[in-house]
């Protein structure tokens, strides 16, 4: 589904991603772990098409098409979703209005008509129930005054509404309390099918107990230095990253 080949990206002349290779197949869950500043969010942004970053080398192939030159909205239309590490506020625009606009813009791009209002309403009810969200929430301004956990839950709500093919969850677990983590993880799991894929970025093994990864990658200084199964996450939790850094230096 997603194939990243030798991806280099820089911002303001400084190289952040230094040759990433990554392949994710339909139905798979991949996890990326790595120290602060290693480039995890940058990778997520670059896949989503954020033009703040300049791709200097390499390609991003999504469903057999090279999407490297596509705008972020075109990538979204093709089914790429990013749950932001820091979701932004849009004052005066309700969650409902935002998601309605989003869904209809995606449909429009695919040559479909607007979603009928009753269908939209039904879907909103269903998905907010799935994530155990108070519906009062939906009429509030997007992310404005939301607690950290509420913002993350709202991201997953949008993901549930949009039903993407590839969901990238950037530290969706940070900020969630124990119950919320379970609810959100349950939600993510229930949205999983054999045709879609998930890329989770996290610092904590705990999330991976709920959303079980098929592959775990370690990102260090802009490169994937190790990949393994879910046991790798446990090892990282115990040992930290220093041993991997040492391996890098020695290599």
């Amino acid at each position: 589904m997603l194939k990243i080949q030798n991806l280099h990206a820089s911002v303001e002349g400084e190289e952040i991603l230094k040759g990433i290779n990554l392949e994710i197949n339909p139905g798979e869950v991949h996890a990326i772990m790595g120290p602060n500043g290693s480039g995890k969010s940058t990778l997520a942004s670059v896949i989503a098409g954020n033009e703040d970053f300049e791709v200097t080398q390499g390609d991003i192939i999504f469903e057999k098409a090279n999407i490297s030159e596509l705008s972020p909205e075109e990538r979204a239309h093709r089914g790429i979703f990013l749950s932001f590490q820091y979701p932004v506020e849009i004052p005066g625009v309700s969650v409902t209005n935002f998601i309605k606009t989003s869904i209809n813009q995606v449909r429009k791009a695919r040559g479909e008509k607007d979603m009928p209002a009753n269908e939209m309403l039904k879907k909103i009810r269903e998905k907010s129930a799935l994530l155990d969200m108070d519906r009062k929430f939906l009429s509030r301004s997007l992310n404005e005054g939301f607690s950290g956990g509420e913002k993350k839950r709202n991201e997953i709500f949008q993901m549930a509404m949009l039903e993407p093919k590839l969901a990238i969850l950037d530290e969706t677990d940070s900020g969630l309390d124990i119950d919320a983590l379970r609810i959100v993880s349950d939600g993510v799991n229930r949205l999983k099918t054999k045709d879609n894929a998930t890329l989770v970025i996290t610092h904590y093994q705990r999330l991976l107990d709920y959303v079980v990864p098929d592959v775990v990658h370690v990102l260090l200084d802009g490169k994937i230095v190790k990949s393994g199964d879910k046991e790798l996450a446990k090892e990282l939790e115990e040992r930290g990253y220093d041993w991997l850094k040492a391996e890098q230096v020695n290599a």
Binding site: S71, E73, A76, I90, P91, N97, I99, Q105, A109, S141
Partner: peptide
């Protein structure tokens, strides 16, 4: 960052600005 957030949700820049401005003026 607001524009990118909207873009990521499939909303093009033109529509994103309209959305933000409408929100501001609500």
């Amino acid at each position: 960052d607001q524009i990118f957030y909207c873009n990521q949700r499939g909303i093009d820049t033109e529509k994103a600005i309209a959305l933000i401005v409408n929100g501001f003026s609500k």
